[in-house]
Design a protein around this nucleic acid. Structure first.
Length: 481
RNA sequence: GCCCCCAUCGUCUAGAGGCCUAGGACAACAGCCUUUCAAGCUGUAGACAGCGAUUCGAAUUCGCUUGGGGGCACCA
Protein backbone atom coordinates (compact mmCIF):
# COMPACT_ATOMS: atom_id res chain seq x y z
CA UNK A 1 0.00 0.00 0.00
CA UNK A 2 1.19 3.48 -0.51
CA UNK A 3 0.44 7.00 0.57
CA UNK A 4 1.27 9.35 -2.25
CA UNK A 5 0.94 13.01 -1.37
CA UNK A 6 2.08 15.83 -3.55
CA UNK A 7 4.32 18.45 -1.98
CA UNK A 8 2.14 21.46 -2.57
CA UNK A 9 1.97 22.83 0.96
CA UNK A 10 1.17 21.66 4.45
CA UNK A 11 -0.05 18.22 5.46
CA UNK A 12 -3.84 18.37 5.26
CA UNK A 13 -5.96 16.46 7.77
CA UNK A 14 -7.78 14.93 4.82
CA UNK A 15 -4.50 13.53 3.57
CA UNK A 16 -3.76 12.22 7.02
CA UNK A 17 -7.15 10.55 7.05
CA UNK A 18 -6.22 8.68 3.89
CA UNK A 19 -2.71 8.01 5.15
CA UNK A 20 -4.08 6.62 8.40
CA UNK A 21 -6.49 4.21 6.73
CA UNK A 22 -3.81 3.09 4.33
CA UNK A 23 -1.35 2.62 7.16
CA UNK A 24 -3.90 0.72 9.24
CA UNK A 25 -4.71 -1.52 6.34
CA UNK A 26 -1.03 -2.21 5.76
CA UNK A 27 -0.31 -2.89 9.41
CA UNK A 28 -3.38 -5.02 9.87
CA UNK A 29 -2.48 -7.17 6.90
CA UNK A 30 1.25 -7.17 7.52
CA UNK A 31 1.82 -5.37 4.27
CA UNK A 32 4.25 -2.58 3.73
CA UNK A 33 3.39 1.06 3.85
CA UNK A 34 5.15 3.11 1.24
CA UNK A 35 5.54 6.85 1.09
CA UNK A 36 5.89 8.17 -2.42
CA UNK A 37 6.19 11.84 -3.23
CA UNK A 38 4.21 12.87 -6.29
CA UNK A 39 6.18 15.91 -7.29
CA UNK A 40 5.26 16.08 -10.93
CA UNK A 41 3.85 19.56 -10.89
CA UNK A 42 6.74 21.94 -11.02
CA UNK A 43 4.47 24.98 -10.76
CA UNK A 44 2.68 24.00 -7.61
CA UNK A 45 5.64 22.61 -5.78
CA UNK A 46 6.17 24.36 -2.45
CA UNK A 47 9.51 24.57 -0.73
CA UNK A 48 9.63 22.72 2.56
CA UNK A 49 6.42 20.79 2.10
CA UNK A 50 8.13 17.43 1.81
CA UNK A 51 9.61 18.02 5.24
CA UNK A 52 6.23 19.13 6.55
CA UNK A 53 4.64 15.95 5.26
CA UNK A 54 7.30 13.72 6.76
CA UNK A 55 7.30 15.60 10.07
CA UNK A 56 3.56 15.33 10.30
CA UNK A 57 3.48 11.63 9.56
CA UNK A 58 6.22 10.94 12.04
CA UNK A 59 4.59 13.02 14.71
CA UNK A 60 1.47 10.94 14.27
CA UNK A 61 3.48 7.78 14.34
CA UNK A 62 2.56 6.77 10.80
CA UNK A 63 5.97 5.39 10.02
CA UNK A 64 6.59 4.29 6.46
CA UNK A 65 8.44 1.11 5.57
CA UNK A 66 9.75 2.41 2.30
CA UNK A 67 10.20 5.91 1.00
CA UNK A 68 12.25 9.05 1.47
CA UNK A 69 14.94 8.79 4.14
CA UNK A 70 14.22 5.09 4.66
CA UNK A 71 14.90 3.68 1.23
CA UNK A 72 13.52 0.42 -0.05
CA UNK A 73 13.79 -1.87 -3.01
CA UNK A 74 11.49 0.06 -5.29
CA UNK A 75 13.01 3.53 -5.22
CA UNK A 76 13.53 6.26 -5.95
CA UNK A 77 10.44 7.43 -4.11
CA UNK A 78 10.22 10.82 -5.74
CA UNK A 79 8.43 10.84 -9.05
CA UNK A 80 10.65 13.62 -10.29
CA UNK A 81 13.46 11.08 -10.16
CA UNK A 82 11.59 8.49 -12.15
CA UNK A 83 10.91 10.42 -15.32
CA UNK A 84 12.59 7.92 -17.60
CA UNK A 85 10.09 5.28 -16.56
CA UNK A 86 7.17 7.45 -17.59
CA UNK A 87 8.79 8.43 -20.88
CA UNK A 88 9.36 4.83 -21.67
CA UNK A 89 5.75 3.93 -20.93
CA UNK A 90 4.53 6.85 -23.00
CA UNK A 91 6.73 5.88 -25.95
CA UNK A 92 5.48 2.36 -25.74
CA UNK A 93 1.87 3.45 -25.73
CA UNK A 94 2.43 5.69 -28.74
CA UNK A 95 4.14 2.98 -30.70
CA UNK A 96 1.39 0.54 -29.79
CA UNK A 97 -1.17 2.99 -31.06
CA UNK A 98 -2.71 3.55 -27.62
CA UNK A 99 -1.50 7.12 -27.32
CA UNK A 100 -0.64 9.98 -29.61
CA UNK A 101 1.09 13.32 -29.77
CA UNK A 102 -1.10 16.36 -29.43
CA UNK A 103 -0.01 19.79 -30.62
CA UNK A 104 -2.96 21.83 -29.47
CA UNK A 105 -2.03 25.02 -27.66
CA UNK A 106 -3.35 25.75 -24.18
CA UNK A 107 -5.13 28.74 -25.68
CA UNK A 108 -6.97 26.61 -28.17
CA UNK A 109 -7.95 24.17 -25.43
CA UNK A 110 -9.24 26.97 -23.24
CA UNK A 111 -11.33 28.37 -26.05
CA UNK A 112 -12.62 24.96 -26.89
CA UNK A 113 -13.69 24.34 -23.31
CA UNK A 114 -15.29 27.75 -22.99
CA UNK A 115 -17.26 27.08 -26.13
CA UNK A 116 -18.34 23.66 -24.88
CA UNK A 117 -19.52 25.11 -21.61
CA UNK A 118 -21.37 27.86 -23.46
CA UNK A 119 -23.16 25.27 -25.57
CA UNK A 120 -23.77 23.26 -22.39
CA UNK A 121 -21.73 20.42 -23.77
CA UNK A 122 -19.60 18.30 -21.47
CA UNK A 123 -16.12 19.79 -21.56
CA UNK A 124 -13.45 17.50 -22.95
CA UNK A 125 -10.72 17.33 -25.52
CA UNK A 126 -12.13 17.24 -29.03
CA UNK A 127 -9.49 14.80 -30.29
CA UNK A 128 -8.27 17.09 -33.01
CA UNK A 129 -4.81 15.52 -33.02
CA UNK A 130 -5.91 11.95 -32.52
CA UNK A 131 -5.60 10.94 -36.13
CA UNK A 132 -2.91 13.24 -37.46
CA UNK A 133 -0.85 11.63 -40.22
CA UNK A 134 2.91 11.69 -40.44
CA UNK A 135 3.17 14.74 -42.71
CA UNK A 136 0.91 16.82 -40.48
CA UNK A 137 2.93 15.78 -37.48
CA UNK A 138 6.18 16.68 -39.21
CA UNK A 139 4.79 20.09 -40.01
CA UNK A 140 3.82 20.69 -36.39
CA UNK A 141 7.17 19.48 -35.14
CA UNK A 142 8.90 21.78 -37.59
CA UNK A 143 7.04 24.78 -36.24
CA UNK A 144 8.70 24.12 -32.91
CA UNK A 145 5.73 22.93 -30.87
CA UNK A 146 6.54 20.49 -28.10
CA UNK A 147 3.64 18.08 -28.06
CA UNK A 148 1.99 16.40 -25.15
CA UNK A 149 1.14 12.72 -25.19
CA UNK A 150 -2.51 11.85 -24.93
CA UNK A 151 -4.13 8.53 -24.26
CA UNK A 152 -6.28 7.15 -27.04
CA UNK A 153 -9.37 6.38 -25.02
CA UNK A 154 -11.58 3.73 -26.61
CA UNK A 155 -14.57 5.43 -28.21
CA UNK A 156 -17.00 2.72 -27.27
CA UNK A 157 -17.58 0.15 -24.59
CA UNK A 158 -17.69 0.35 -20.85
CA UNK A 159 -15.01 0.30 -18.20
CA UNK A 160 -15.83 -0.78 -14.72
CA UNK A 161 -14.14 -1.92 -11.57
CA UNK A 162 -15.03 -3.32 -8.22
CA UNK A 163 -14.25 -0.94 -5.44
CA UNK A 164 -13.74 -2.52 -2.05
CA UNK A 165 -15.78 0.19 -0.41
CA UNK A 166 -18.22 1.22 -3.13
CA UNK A 167 -18.87 -1.99 -4.97
CA UNK A 168 -19.23 -2.09 -8.73
CA UNK A 169 -18.82 1.14 -10.61
CA UNK A 170 -19.06 1.42 -14.37
CA UNK A 171 -18.46 4.17 -16.86
CA UNK A 172 -19.20 4.52 -20.56
CA UNK A 173 -15.95 5.03 -22.37
CA UNK A 174 -17.71 7.57 -24.55
CA UNK A 175 -17.88 9.91 -21.56
CA UNK A 176 -14.11 9.82 -21.11
CA UNK A 177 -11.90 12.12 -23.13
CA UNK A 178 -8.30 11.67 -24.24
CA UNK A 179 -6.39 12.58 -21.14
CA UNK A 180 -2.86 13.91 -21.19
CA UNK A 181 -0.22 11.43 -20.05
CA UNK A 182 2.93 13.40 -20.59
CA UNK A 183 3.04 17.15 -20.29
CA UNK A 184 5.07 19.32 -22.62
CA UNK A 185 7.58 20.01 -19.85
CA UNK A 186 8.45 16.34 -19.86
CA UNK A 187 6.71 15.54 -16.58
CA UNK A 188 3.99 12.93 -16.47
CA UNK A 189 0.49 13.67 -15.27
CA UNK A 190 -0.79 12.03 -12.12
CA UNK A 191 -2.61 9.43 -14.19
CA UNK A 192 0.42 8.07 -15.97
CA UNK A 193 2.83 8.35 -13.08
CA UNK A 194 0.52 6.74 -10.60
CA UNK A 195 -0.24 3.78 -12.86
CA UNK A 196 3.37 3.23 -13.82
CA UNK A 197 4.60 3.52 -10.24
CA UNK A 198 1.89 1.51 -8.58
CA UNK A 199 2.75 -1.28 -10.96
CA UNK A 200 6.50 -0.88 -10.59
CA UNK A 201 6.25 -0.74 -6.82
CA UNK A 202 3.93 -3.72 -6.74
CA UNK A 203 1.18 -1.88 -4.96
CA UNK A 204 -1.61 -4.34 -4.24
CA UNK A 205 -4.24 -1.91 -2.94
CA UNK A 206 -4.78 1.67 -3.91
CA UNK A 207 -6.50 3.51 -1.10
CA UNK A 208 -7.34 7.11 -1.89
CA UNK A 209 -10.11 9.64 -1.46
CA UNK A 210 -13.44 9.57 -3.24
CA UNK A 211 -12.50 12.43 -5.50
CA UNK A 212 -10.53 9.90 -7.53
CA UNK A 213 -13.42 7.64 -8.37
CA UNK A 214 -14.14 9.29 -11.67
CA UNK A 215 -10.61 8.98 -12.93
CA UNK A 216 -10.30 5.36 -11.96
CA UNK A 217 -11.71 4.02 -15.26
CA UNK A 218 -8.98 5.92 -17.07
CA UNK A 219 -6.46 4.24 -14.85
CA UNK A 220 -8.00 0.83 -15.47
CA UNK A 221 -7.76 1.50 -19.20
CA UNK A 222 -4.14 2.52 -18.80
CA UNK A 223 -3.27 -0.59 -16.85
CA UNK A 224 -4.83 -2.58 -19.64
CA UNK A 225 -2.98 -0.78 -22.43
CA UNK A 226 0.30 -1.21 -20.57
CA UNK A 227 -0.42 -4.86 -20.03
CA UNK A 228 -0.51 -4.50 -16.28
CA UNK A 229 -2.78 -6.15 -13.77
CA UNK A 230 -4.65 -3.34 -11.97
CA UNK A 231 -4.52 -3.24 -8.17
CA UNK A 232 -7.57 -3.33 -5.93
CA UNK A 233 -9.14 0.04 -5.38
CA UNK A 234 -10.71 1.42 -2.24
CA UNK A 235 -12.04 4.97 -2.31
CA UNK A 236 -12.51 6.63 1.02
CA UNK A 237 -15.31 8.96 2.00
CA UNK A 238 -14.40 12.61 1.77
CA UNK A 239 -13.84 14.78 4.81
CA UNK A 240 -16.11 17.79 4.61
CA UNK A 241 -16.70 21.01 6.49
CA UNK A 242 -19.92 22.09 8.21
CA UNK A 243 -21.27 23.15 4.82
CA UNK A 244 -20.70 19.62 3.52
CA UNK A 245 -18.19 20.74 0.94
CA UNK A 246 -14.77 19.19 0.72
CA UNK A 247 -12.73 20.24 3.76
CA UNK A 248 -10.58 23.23 2.96
CA UNK A 249 -8.81 26.22 4.44
CA UNK A 250 -12.01 28.20 4.80
CA UNK A 251 -13.25 25.63 7.30
CA UNK A 252 -10.61 26.55 9.86
CA UNK A 253 -7.60 24.55 10.88
CA UNK A 254 -6.87 21.88 8.27
CA UNK A 255 -3.16 21.32 8.63
CA UNK A 256 -1.81 18.85 11.14
CA UNK A 257 0.80 21.38 12.13
CA UNK A 258 -1.91 23.68 13.42
CA UNK A 259 -3.38 20.95 15.57
CA UNK A 260 0.01 20.04 16.81
CA UNK A 261 0.66 23.63 17.82
CA UNK A 262 -2.68 23.87 19.57
CA UNK A 263 -1.67 20.93 21.65
CA UNK A 264 -3.55 18.03 20.21
CA UNK A 265 -2.09 14.68 21.03
CA UNK A 266 -1.26 12.44 18.10
CA UNK A 267 -3.06 9.57 19.78
CA UNK A 268 -6.27 11.60 20.04
CA UNK A 269 -5.91 12.84 16.50
CA UNK A 270 -5.60 9.33 15.12
CA UNK A 271 -8.44 8.02 17.25
CA UNK A 272 -10.69 10.81 16.10
CA UNK A 273 -9.76 10.51 12.45
CA UNK A 274 -10.21 6.75 12.51
CA UNK A 275 -13.83 7.24 13.55
CA UNK A 276 -14.53 9.41 10.56
CA UNK A 277 -15.87 6.95 8.04
CA UNK A 278 -15.04 3.87 10.03
CA UNK A 279 -16.44 2.24 13.12
CA UNK A 280 -16.03 -1.06 14.87
CA UNK A 281 -19.46 -1.41 16.41
CA UNK A 282 -22.16 0.60 18.08
CA UNK A 283 -20.24 1.63 21.18
CA UNK A 284 -16.49 1.42 21.08
CA UNK A 285 -14.89 4.74 20.38
CA UNK A 286 -11.66 4.89 22.29
CA UNK A 287 -8.95 3.06 20.44
CA UNK A 288 -5.26 2.83 20.99
CA UNK A 289 -3.02 2.52 17.97
CA UNK A 290 -2.90 -1.24 18.51
CA UNK A 291 -6.67 -1.53 18.88
CA UNK A 292 -7.02 0.27 15.60
CA UNK A 293 -4.56 -1.96 13.82
CA UNK A 294 -6.14 -5.10 15.21
CA UNK A 295 -9.68 -4.16 14.36
CA UNK A 296 -9.39 -2.20 11.15
CA UNK A 297 -10.97 -3.42 7.96
CA UNK A 298 -11.92 -1.71 4.73
CA UNK A 299 -15.22 -3.55 4.75
CA UNK A 300 -16.35 -1.39 7.65
CA UNK A 301 -15.54 1.87 5.95
CA UNK A 302 -18.61 3.91 5.15
CA UNK A 303 -19.47 5.64 1.91
CA UNK A 304 -20.87 8.87 3.19
CA UNK A 305 -18.75 11.97 3.51
CA UNK A 306 -17.97 12.82 7.12
CA UNK A 307 -18.01 16.25 8.71
CA UNK A 308 -14.87 17.13 10.58
CA UNK A 309 -16.30 18.00 13.98
CA UNK A 310 -13.82 20.14 15.91
CA UNK A 311 -15.88 19.93 19.10
CA UNK A 312 -15.65 16.19 19.30
CA UNK A 313 -11.95 16.23 18.55
CA UNK A 314 -11.51 18.69 21.39
CA UNK A 315 -13.47 16.51 23.75
CA UNK A 316 -11.46 13.47 22.77
CA UNK A 317 -8.20 15.30 23.22
CA UNK A 318 -9.34 16.33 26.69
CA UNK A 319 -10.08 12.71 27.45
CA UNK A 320 -6.59 11.69 26.39
CA UNK A 321 -5.06 14.47 28.45
CA UNK A 322 -6.98 13.37 31.52
CA UNK A 323 -5.61 9.88 31.07
CA UNK A 324 -2.00 10.99 31.06
CA UNK A 325 0.12 10.21 34.09
CA UNK A 326 1.77 13.08 35.90
CA UNK A 327 5.21 12.73 34.37
CA UNK A 328 3.90 12.39 30.87
CA UNK A 329 1.56 15.33 31.27
CA UNK A 330 4.32 17.48 32.72
CA UNK A 331 6.65 16.59 29.92
CA UNK A 332 4.08 17.42 27.26
CA UNK A 333 2.90 20.62 28.91
CA UNK A 334 6.32 22.10 29.52
CA UNK A 335 7.00 23.27 25.97
CA UNK A 336 3.60 24.95 25.81
CA UNK A 337 4.23 26.81 29.05
CA UNK A 338 7.67 27.73 27.90
CA UNK A 339 6.47 29.41 24.72
CA UNK A 340 3.12 30.59 26.05
CA UNK A 341 3.97 32.24 29.35
CA UNK A 342 4.89 35.94 29.41
CA UNK A 343 8.54 36.86 28.98
CA UNK A 344 8.76 38.19 32.56
CA UNK A 345 8.39 34.71 33.92
CA UNK A 346 11.81 33.35 34.79
CA UNK A 347 13.14 30.52 32.64
CA UNK A 348 13.89 27.74 32.77
CA UNK A 349 10.64 26.80 34.44
CA UNK A 350 10.89 24.57 37.47
CA UNK A 351 9.81 21.11 36.49
CA UNK A 352 9.00 20.34 40.10
CA UNK A 353 6.71 23.36 40.32
CA UNK A 354 4.99 22.46 37.05
CA UNK A 355 4.52 18.95 38.36
CA UNK A 356 2.64 20.35 41.34
CA UNK A 357 0.41 22.46 39.16
CA UNK A 358 -0.55 19.83 36.64
CA UNK A 359 -2.99 17.81 38.77
CA UNK A 360 -4.92 21.01 39.41
CA UNK A 361 -5.55 21.80 35.77
CA UNK A 362 -5.39 18.43 34.09
CA UNK A 363 -9.11 17.89 33.92
CA UNK A 364 -9.67 21.44 32.73
CA UNK A 365 -7.56 21.19 29.59
CA UNK A 366 -8.81 20.16 26.22
CA UNK A 367 -6.04 21.59 24.10
CA UNK A 368 -2.59 21.43 25.63
CA UNK A 369 -2.01 25.04 24.64
CA UNK A 370 -4.70 26.04 27.12
CA UNK A 371 -2.23 25.23 29.86
CA UNK A 372 -0.83 28.73 29.62
CA UNK A 373 -4.10 30.42 30.33
CA UNK A 374 -5.11 27.92 32.98
CA UNK A 375 -1.84 28.15 34.86
CA UNK A 376 -0.53 31.63 34.27
CA UNK A 377 -1.43 32.87 37.75
CA UNK A 378 0.94 30.30 39.18
CA UNK A 379 3.77 32.13 37.46
CA UNK A 380 2.97 35.81 37.11
CA UNK A 381 3.68 37.97 40.15
CA UNK A 382 1.04 40.60 39.38
CA UNK A 383 -2.56 39.67 38.84
CA UNK A 384 -4.90 41.89 36.95
CA UNK A 385 -8.61 41.75 37.66
CA UNK A 386 -11.46 44.10 38.45
CA UNK A 387 -11.81 44.84 42.15
CA UNK A 388 -15.59 44.24 41.93
CA UNK A 389 -14.75 40.62 41.36
CA UNK A 390 -13.65 40.43 44.99
CA UNK A 391 -17.07 41.30 46.26
CA UNK A 392 -19.16 38.19 46.01
CA UNK A 393 -22.88 37.67 46.15
CA UNK A 394 -24.46 39.06 49.31
CA UNK A 395 -21.29 40.86 50.25
CA UNK A 396 -20.06 44.42 50.18
CA UNK A 397 -16.74 46.17 50.18
CA UNK A 398 -16.53 46.15 53.91
CA UNK A 399 -17.22 42.48 54.50
CA UNK A 400 -14.82 41.55 51.72
CA UNK A 401 -12.13 43.74 53.19
CA UNK A 402 -12.65 42.30 56.62
CA UNK A 403 -12.54 38.77 55.31
CA UNK A 404 -9.25 39.50 53.63
CA UNK A 405 -7.68 41.14 56.66
CA UNK A 406 -8.67 38.38 59.03
CA UNK A 407 -7.55 35.75 56.56
CA UNK A 408 -4.22 37.48 56.17
CA UNK A 409 -3.62 37.41 59.91
CA UNK A 410 -4.64 33.82 60.38
CA UNK A 411 -2.75 32.58 57.39
CA UNK A 412 0.31 34.37 58.62
CA UNK A 413 0.14 32.58 61.94
CA UNK A 414 -0.26 29.12 60.46
CA UNK A 415 2.42 26.58 61.06
CA UNK A 416 1.97 24.45 57.97
CA UNK A 417 0.55 25.51 54.63
CA UNK A 418 -0.76 22.32 53.15
CA UNK A 419 -4.19 21.59 51.76
CA UNK A 420 -5.54 20.00 54.93
CA UNK A 421 -4.42 22.67 57.36
CA UNK A 422 -5.75 25.35 55.06
CA UNK A 423 -9.14 23.71 55.03
CA UNK A 424 -9.12 23.24 58.79
CA UNK A 425 -8.35 26.90 59.22
CA UNK A 426 -10.52 28.46 56.56
CA UNK A 427 -13.73 26.49 56.78
CA UNK A 428 -14.56 27.54 60.38
CA UNK A 429 -13.34 31.02 59.60
CA UNK A 430 -16.27 31.63 57.29
CA UNK A 431 -18.66 31.01 60.13
CA UNK A 432 -16.72 33.27 62.40
CA UNK A 433 -16.93 36.05 59.84
CA UNK A 434 -20.62 35.49 59.39
CA UNK A 435 -20.11 34.38 55.81
CA UNK A 436 -21.02 31.31 53.89
CA UNK A 437 -18.06 29.17 52.98
CA UNK A 438 -18.70 29.89 49.32
CA UNK A 439 -18.46 33.62 50.00
CA UNK A 440 -15.19 33.48 51.86
CA UNK A 441 -13.66 31.03 49.44
CA UNK A 442 -14.84 33.15 46.56
CA UNK A 443 -13.07 36.24 47.81
CA UNK A 444 -9.89 34.30 48.43
CA UNK A 445 -10.10 32.59 45.09
CA UNK A 446 -10.22 35.85 43.21
CA UNK A 447 -7.52 37.28 45.44
CA UNK A 448 -5.17 34.43 44.88
CA UNK A 449 -5.88 33.54 41.22
CA UNK A 450 -7.35 36.69 39.79
CA UNK A 451 -10.40 34.90 38.50
CA UNK A 452 -13.72 33.53 39.60
CA UNK A 453 -13.23 30.15 37.98
CA UNK A 454 -10.14 28.29 39.07
CA UNK A 455 -8.93 24.99 40.48
CA UNK A 456 -9.88 24.05 44.07
CA UNK A 457 -8.84 26.80 46.47
CA UNK A 458 -6.86 24.99 49.16
CA UNK A 459 -4.79 22.99 46.74
CA UNK A 460 -4.13 26.07 44.70
CA UNK A 461 -3.01 28.04 47.73
CA UNK A 462 -0.82 25.21 48.92
CA UNK A 463 0.99 25.15 45.58
CA UNK A 464 1.31 28.91 45.47
CA UNK A 465 2.80 28.96 48.94
CA UNK A 466 2.26 31.18 51.89
CA UNK A 467 4.37 34.13 50.77
CA UNK A 468 2.74 34.57 47.43
CA UNK A 469 -0.73 34.13 48.92
CA UNK A 470 -0.08 36.78 51.53
CA UNK A 471 1.33 39.19 48.98
CA UNK A 472 -1.77 38.72 46.88
CA UNK A 473 -4.02 39.31 49.84
CA UNK A 474 -2.19 42.57 50.52
CA UNK A 475 -2.65 43.54 46.89
CA UNK A 476 -6.36 42.79 47.11
CA UNK A 477 -6.76 44.79 50.30
CA UNK A 478 -5.10 47.68 48.57
CA UNK A 479 -7.39 47.32 45.60
CA UNK A 480 -10.47 47.46 47.79
CA UNK A 481 -9.29 50.14 50.12
C1' G B 1 -24.60 20.84 -18.88
C1' C B 2 -22.64 15.64 -18.76
C1' C B 3 -20.72 11.37 -15.85
C1' C B 4 -20.25 8.86 -11.05
C1' C B 5 -21.88 8.47 -6.18
C1' C B 6 -24.36 9.32 -1.45
C1' A B 7 -28.86 9.88 1.94
C1' U B 8 -30.45 7.18 10.11
C1' C B 9 -30.77 12.52 15.78
C1' G B 10 -27.40 19.41 14.68
C1' U B 11 -22.53 16.22 14.11
C1' C B 12 -19.81 11.14 14.04
C1' U B 13 -22.13 6.61 13.76
C1' A B 14 -24.71 1.20 15.06
C1' G B 15 -28.21 -1.11 12.08
C1' A B 16 -26.90 -6.12 6.35
C1' G B 17 -36.26 -8.06 6.52
C1' G B 18 -38.87 -9.40 12.30
C1' C B 19 -33.88 -8.49 18.13
C1' C B 20 -35.93 -1.13 16.32
C1' U B 21 -41.93 1.85 20.41
C1' A B 22 -34.13 2.70 16.05
C1' G B 23 -28.64 1.84 20.08
C1' G B 24 -23.96 4.66 21.39
C1' A B 25 -20.81 9.21 21.34
C1' C B 26 -20.00 14.77 20.78
C1' A B 27 -22.84 19.08 21.26
C1' A B 28 -27.54 21.04 23.88
C1' C B 29 -30.66 21.08 28.19
C1' A B 30 -31.90 19.55 33.40
C1' G B 31 -30.47 17.40 37.99
C1' C B 32 -26.84 15.27 41.41
C1' C B 33 -21.91 16.08 43.46
C1' U B 34 -19.54 20.67 45.00
C1' U B 35 -15.89 26.46 47.78
C1' U B 36 -16.03 28.46 41.84
C1' C B 37 -14.81 26.21 37.10
C1' A B 38 -14.04 21.65 35.36
C1' A B 39 -14.29 16.39 35.70
C1' G B 40 -17.76 12.58 37.05
C1' C B 41 -22.71 10.50 37.51
C1' U B 42 -28.08 10.49 36.26
C1' G B 43 -31.78 12.03 33.16
C1' U B 44 -34.41 14.98 28.98
C1' A B 45 -34.87 16.41 24.04
C1' G B 46 -33.44 14.84 19.16
C1' A B 47 -33.19 10.94 13.16
C1' C B 48 -34.67 6.33 9.36
C1' A B 49 -35.60 12.86 3.11
C1' G B 50 -40.50 11.91 0.29
C1' C B 51 -43.57 8.70 -2.57
C1' G B 52 -44.62 4.14 -4.57
C1' A B 53 -43.50 -1.28 -5.06
C1' U B 54 -42.02 -6.29 -3.07
C1' U B 55 -43.29 -8.90 1.55
C1' C B 56 -47.32 -11.67 6.60
C1' G B 57 -43.61 -7.91 8.05
C1' A B 58 -38.93 -2.80 5.65
C1' A B 59 -34.35 2.01 8.40
C1' U B 60 -32.82 -2.46 6.01
C1' U B 61 -34.76 -4.91 -1.04
C1' C B 62 -36.37 -2.38 -5.84
C1' G B 63 -38.09 2.09 -8.62
C1' C B 64 -39.02 7.21 -8.94
C1' U B 65 -38.65 12.14 -6.82
C1' U B 66 -36.06 15.50 -3.90
C1' G B 67 -31.70 16.99 -1.60
C1' G B 68 -26.35 16.73 -1.25
C1' G B 69 -21.41 15.67 -2.87
C1' G B 70 -17.40 14.39 -6.21
C1' G B 71 -15.41 14.62 -11.13
C1' C B 72 -15.21 16.70 -16.12
C1' A B 73 -6.89 20.78 -16.53
C1' C B 74 -0.36 20.16 -19.99
C1' C B 75 -3.29 19.93 -10.73
C1' A B 76 -2.81 16.17 -7.85
Amino acid sequence: MRFAPSPTGFLHVGSVHTALFTWLFARHNKGSFILRIEDTDVERKVEGSIEAIMDGLRWLGLEWDEGPEVGGNYGPYFQSQRLELYHEAARRLVSQGDAYYCYCSPDRLDEMRAEQVRRKQPPGYDRLCRDLDQTERDRMEASGITPVVRFKTPLEGKTGFKDIIWGDIEFDNSTLDDLVLLKSDGYPTYHLANVVDDHAMEISHVIRAEEWVSSTPRHILLYGALGYQPPYFAHMPLLVGPDRAKLGKRHGAVSVTEYRELGYMPEAMLNFLALLGWSLDDKTEIFSREDLINNFSLERVSRTAATFNHEKLKWMNGLYIRNLDLDDLTRRALPFLDTGLPLEVKRPLSIEYVRQIMPLIQERMREMAEVTDLAHFFFSEELSYESELLIGKGMNQESALQALKVSRNRLGEMTGFDTESLEVLLRPLADELGLKTGQLFGVLRVTVTGRAAAPPLFQTMAVLGRDLCLRRIEAAIEKLG
